[in-house]
């Protein structure tokens, strides 16, 4: 059976350290925009950690929520792309093909989660910082959209390594950069079609919710949390 990649984020474990954000930037050659351009809304973060504050000082509770592309089964970005740059692959990835993208930015407007980013500039790295670029990932030029790929390069190399060794792909063989770097183990990645995988089991957890579920986008990322933040810690 074909793979169907999905992710689970346990918000009760997330400490908001943003190691995932750093790892994502390093893995995927994401440039930083600088303060001025970030102020104009041109910063790019395939993965961001949202902060939600509850209560008044000093009785404040904060919740962190890492938000990345939700790889929706019914993705609004795909329907509006005039060039098929944004499309669903056989493995359930919401792909962004830079070659096809002509920069209409319809997808960014259609996306409910605000996780698609437009390259307003050619990214620049002062030498010798270009030497730390990941050779397995494209460097996107001005005029194309980009977004979280679930580290498709790692999915490819994981599958390739398993084939080279002549074995089946195991749960946990493939780890996107955010999953690998999370010190709390709050992000879990796996094949949702493999019912034994951790991600597939946790997807059906009673603690699970999906972002903006009632929009009908059918995201493949599940967020686990106690049903109410005000609930006492019983677990």
């Amino acid at each position: 059976m074909a793979h169907r990649w999905g992710m689970v984020v346990d918000l009760d474990k997330c400490t908001g350290c943003e190691a995932c954000v750093t790892a994502c930037h390093a893995e995927n050659n994401i440039p930083t925009a600088g303060a001025t351009e970030a102020g104009r809304g041109r910063a790019m973060h395939w993965l961001r950690v949202e902060r939600y504050w509850e209560g008044d000082f000093p009785d404040v509770k904060v919740k962190f929520k890492p938000v990345m592309c939700q790889h929706c089964d019914n993705a609004p970005c795909e329907a509006v792309c005039p060039t098929y740059a944004s499309h669903q692959t056989d493995e359930g990835l919401n792909a962004q093909v830079y070659n096809r993208c002509i920069g209409t930015r319809y997808c960014a407007n259609a996306c409910s989660y605000n996780v698609r980013f437009f390259n307003f500039f050619n990214p620049q790295w002062e030498k010798p910082l270009q030497l730390q670029l990941n050779p397995d990932v494209s460097v996107r030029e001005v005029g194309v959209m980009e977004k979280c790929t679930f580290c498709v390069q790692r999915i490819k190399s994981g599958k390739s390594a398993a084939k080279a060794d002549g074995r089946e792909l195991k749960d946990g063989d493939i780890q996107p950069a955010c999953v690998q770097s999370c010190p709390a183990g709050a992000i879990i990645f796996g094949d949702l079609n493999d019912h034994e995988s951790r991600a597939a089991r946790l997807t059906h957890s009673p603690r699970g919710t999906k972002l903006l579920e009632d929009e009908g986008t059918e995201p493949k990322v599940t967020y686990l949390q106690r049903q109410s933040w005000n609930e006492p810690d019983t677990q």
């Binding site: 620049q124 670029l133 460097v139």
Partner: peptide, 8 residues
Amino acid sequence: TSSVYTPA
């Protein structure tokens, strides 16, 4: 050869 790398 430039001191700044850009994919352009």
